[in-house]
Amino acid sequence: MTSLRFRAVALALALLLGVPALAAAAELSLLNVSYDPTRELYADYNKIFAAHWKAKTGDTVTIKASHGGSGSQARAVIDGLEADVVTLALAYDIDAIASKSALIAPDWQKRLPDNATPYTSTIVFLVRKGNPKQIKDWNDLIRSDVKVITPNPKTSGGARWNYLAAWGYALRQNGADQAKAQEFVAKLYANVPVLDSGARGATLTFVQRRQGDVLLAWENEAFLSIDEFGKDKVEIVVPSVSILAEPPVAVVDKTVDRRGTRGVAEEYLKYLYSPEGQETVARHYFRPRSSEVAAKYTERFPQLPLFTIDEVFGGWTKAQQVHFSDGGVFDQIYKPGK
């Protein structure tokens, strides 16, 4: 009797533990290690690409994606996260993988058109409905009554674009005076109560947790939050000037050669430049490179003067070293936890 009962309970427990389903079907797979606000874009694009690959070669490819702050993601790849392709927020993070791990060839940015950035974006402001604090431009962000939400430049790519966009604005206002620009950015970060590790975390902090008055956001992330949370919650403010954000893509050479996935990985990135790829990109609020596709979406993307990182900061390597390295300018101006 007890023995029977024992077996019954043990059986129930065994069912609880379950027998793991063995997914053994041998098929092609890719891992795309990406940054935060591209979740929706790549969820969509992966399906489109899989169909394209199937039509082209007859093979089935499944694409896995991992998202997080761009800097954290790059470090995870350096630390051993096995990516076939990386699609990160800025060139420096891919350079870092190339130089610290030699997983990617140093000339990666020349292997695809447009500096290996199939789409661009910019930095805009997201404010609460009706813009209660009347935030119009960058100089409103240093007002003492304004709390600014932006992620951590040490871990997030978007956060570095935010920071450099503010710096570039200040340079323009002050006749290219670096000291004044630093003062401006220091004042701005004095208004930042929390630094999330990625852009998505910052969006949730602003929209869902209702912290702060303005979110510095990727344009695509700002549009997406309006889609998700509704026009009655938040609205977009376009500043007078911003930065041209170029999120690049690259194949991880060592990994694809070892796994034998180079062909599909290269096509995965190239197809982003095709009309279908560019359409998908634009649908998810990234600015397409293709002028034909861009022409269809002129109403979606506001026109504003955009400066590039090469013009103002002399490229990513220099900007990273001056501003975001340990003990760099950002470390000097940010004093958290007041």
Partner: peptide
């Protein structure tokens, strides 16, 4: 939690943040 440093940031979260910054 609001995860605001100094106000609603707990120690385990601070550890994770440090880890993410490597």
């Amino acid at each position: 939690a609001g995860n605001m440093p100094g106000l609603s940031e707990i120690v385990p979260l601070l550890i994770v943040i440090k880890l993410e910054q490597f």
